[in-house]
Amino acid sequence: MIRIPCPNCGPRNSSEFSYFGELGSRPAPDAVDPAHWRHYLYDKKNPAGWTTEKWYHASGCRKFFAIERNTLTNDVKSGRPFGVESSSEESS
């Protein structure tokens, strides 16, 4: 059971979280062509190593956040929340 560092609750067992995969960015829906949209839907970098991904603390604070995780070792760097209210944090 690896631990995921929730930026709000601290490290917790991964079973408390839902995994939402690699962070991607959504193309503007009006300008997009099918190839680009489906690239957004389906294509992943799937690296063997460090990647940035989105997790949701379903059994805890119910917040989404991003973490850097190494897919070979499962080492994790500290999490970063999305859209926090304090202006010092950057949302992504």
């Binding site: 939402f20 949701y56 989404f64 999305f82 859209g83």
Partner: peptide, 14 residues
């Protein structure tokens, strides 16, 4: 619930 929170928190935090 997760779907709605996901959009709110990650795409439309404002």
């Amino acid at each position: 619930h997760e779907w709605v929170e996901n959009w709110l928190q990650t795409s439309f935090p404002s």
